[in-house]
Design a protein around this nucleic acid. Structure first.
Lengths: 162, 162
DNA sequence: AAATGTATTGTTATAATATAACAATAATTG
DNA sequence: CAATTATTGTTATATTATAACAATACATTT
């Protein structure tokens, strides 16, 4: 299992994250016959403005600034759309959303999340699937979705603890 | 990894679950010098009324019936107390709480959760810890807490799908 | 291009979840 | 018993999310 983005490296080229996410989104929308409308693209950009999960209401001012309607349903609809296509993940314990680093192929939501700086680094969990499938099969459970959250302190924030 | 309670077996003796949970709570409170007050005990009983996670507001009517104050802070305080002692887990994706089947030793929150009947069966994840520790160590992440949710359809609900 | 149906967005209202702040009471300690 | 701490009561409000319906934009067929 490896980290699949550079979220915890503050020197990474984040423009590259954003442009990659946008490129992925366009391809995935194309392939699935969905439209990446201006609102949806903006919401995706906003979610990708950092690797810190953002709550729906934190996006509203930027929607207003861009001249869009900024009532809650607008942003929730866009978030739902992006979530259904696997372009973003929801972090349940934070009620917040973060970009998916690898949306080309559907996969579970799995993150290390720093309680101090809130940064969420996506992790790859294919090596866990055998265990999950085993427990599910043992109990006749049809596994459809997974949410995995590893909470703690990132390297940077460990160093600067009081 | 094995299921550690009989949540998905509707024939299980649930009184045994409840009495075990209460016994555990008393021991753990004793050992940690905390008080299992009447409100706290009632909230624990209510959370344990089934294996379906309950939202905080679902507990309020029963608190009122029992003659207690039933404003939100009352139940959230009790839930926070029980959560801190590891007597209940919070299911982030449901904003709901469920009893912990094995609170004697602290451990991560890990459940299979049926999207149809909402039953949550706790699972034991010690075999995953090596993977989690490895990814955390690789990135200097200090792992403090885990939330693992396996979402899908339980055996009973698979049978009765339309 | 016009007519039709579908998808998306706008708008208002409200539901559901959670916490802040301070007062009152109960339990514990010295 | 007095002083301190923990717990509970109370009011108000913050935060997160959805329902319901109207208006507009887009796509498809003719």
């Amino acid at each position: 299992m490896l980290e699949i983005n550079d979220a915890f490296n503050s020197d990474h080229n984040h423009d590259h994250c954003v442009s990659g996410a946008l490129d992925n989104a366009k391809v995935i929308c194309q392939e699935s016959g969905q439209r990446l409308t201006p609102i949806r693209e903006l919401v995706l950009r906003l979610v990708w403005s950092s690797h810190k999960p953002l709550g729906a209401y934190e996006l509203l001012p930027a929607l207003a600034d861009a001249g869009f309607n900024s009532a809650p349903p607008t942003v929730y609809r866009a978030l739902d759309f992006l979530h259904q296509l696997g372009l973003i993940h929801k972090i349940g314990s934070l009620n917040a959303f973060v970009g998916c680093s690898n949306p080309e192929h559907p996969h579970p939501s799995a993150f290390m999340i720093c309680r101090e700086c809130k940064t969420a680094a996506e992790i790859e969990t294919s090596e866990l699937q055998e265990s999950f499938n085993r427990v599910a099969n043992t109990h006749g459970f049809q596994l459809e979705e997974e949410n995995i959250e590893l909470l703690g302190l990132c390297s940077d924030c460990r160093g600067s603890e009081s």
